[in-house]
Write a protein that binds this DNA or RNA. Structure first.
Lengths: 224, 224
DNA sequence: GTGCGGATGAAAGGAACCTGAAATGGCCGA
DNA sequence: TCGGCCATTTCAGGTTCCTTTCATCCGCAC
């Protein structure tokens, strides 16, 4: 709930914002231009975007419109331009707030809190179903034969990644780095422990898995 | 969807705003001070409020807080004061945007559209009922066996978030950042204190909760 | 058939973490 | 001054995680 993507072409401002936001508990990602901002937002969807309008590659409103095609994440625009024309365009493109430079950091933080208040409860409900169980990603809930299955945080982390990539082969490194961090990329035995627990809780026949398939030496595949 | 309540003590501004907004398709109600604004908003709930901070009777942030006790209607603040302190206070009291005078009418209209975008989708059931108690989100009231239950502001904040997301798993971070701010995202022990108080007040068997379920290491789930 | 290496699944123990309950001091408004 | 609310800490009990060990399985070369 605290991932913020900050987009600005000035590295000094980028750094200053990163430090300030981090000091207030946000987990900050940065991008220096529109293209990388869009890529970053697609790969790691943030919970808010702070966007400078004066980018080297893309027009600011273009970035807003592109993001709005697939996400309703709150967008807070920073700009040096005071013209009301720019403000109207950015806001109507889908921005949620517009702050002109220079701005107070207190104000920026307060506005960030304000735009985040709304978004918190507005996300979609993707559901993945198999013959044996159902995974509700938004509710973070797994049901099997009408019964709720209790999963530990680590078990859920693995299941979530697999369920978001059905039928795709997910490598051990991907899972390890996502859940334990890059330093654990070689600890494949951890995966075996938790895959076994997932199978025990969800597979009808844990010894002969039908949904969590092992690809020896490479990774795992989730078969709905 | 177009009823706007405009609050300002200057009759000229009031009239000018009324004409402008009306010309853009809004149905405008007006109030010259905080007291009548609150009465008007309660009697004819508007779809947005444009609020001048410099009112003769009540402090602006007081008006915002009072409205927020029972409504999430978008509030757009107008003010002559540029100080960031006023902005932060108003935004944290529950305002959705803050415009300093003098402002362009185009900008005001664009910001009004921006804050209204969110409220479109926010018409959830204002009353949540469980086997043991009833939560009235709009009236900020909890009843149990016909008796009103008194909740402290923090307790209510937590209950409100959980009740607006029934059956969904709400993470500790979500609760902490919503209520205490992002900097407190790690203080999970605060949550335990207030969840225990909520359970004591609302659960039939506080030691064995049926409605406020703990998901160890992740968060809490509200089961109606 | 036999031996071998790499990888897998099962099991287990202690460490680390999470939880609910309770208690304390500070702050603020009545 | 008092009472209510809040922030913060401590503690015991329980759960989850990390890590290692061991038997098994599979493909492959000899």
């Amino acid at each position: 709930m605290n991932d913020v993507l900050v987009v600005d072409d000035d590295p000094h401002i980028l750094k200053a914002l990163k430090i300030t936001l981090h000091a207030h508990g946000y987990n900050v990602m940065t991008a220096p231009d529109g293209g990388s901002a869009l890529r970053s937002a697609a790969q790691y969807p943030p919970d808010a975007i702070v966007l400078d309008l004066g980018l080297p590659d893309l027009d600011g409103t273009t970035v807003i419109k592109r993001v709005r095609q697939w996400s309703r994440v709150p967008i807070l625009v920073l700009s040096a331009r005071h013209g009301s024309d720019d403000k109207v365009k950015a806001l109507d493109a889908g921005a949620d707030d517009y702050v002109t430079k220079p701005f107070g950091l207190d104000e920026l933080l307060a506005r960030l809190r304000a735009v985040q208040r709304w978004s918190f409860q507005a996300d979609e409900a993707p559901v993945v179903t198999t013959a044996s169980f159902t995974v509700n990603l938004a509710m973070r809930q797994v049901t099997r034969g009408g019964q709720d299955i209790r999963l530990t945080p680590t078990e859920w982390g693995i299941l979530e990644i697999l369920a978001r990539n059905p039928e795709k082969l997910v490598t051990q490194q991907q899972l390890l780095t996502e859940i334990w961090g890059p330093a654990y990329a070689k600890e494949a035995s951890y995966l075996r422990v938790y895959m076994a627990q997932l199978r025990r809780k969800l597979e009808p026949e844990p010894g002969n898995p039908r949904h969590f398939l092992t690809e020896a030496g490479i990774g795992y595949r989730f078969q709905p």
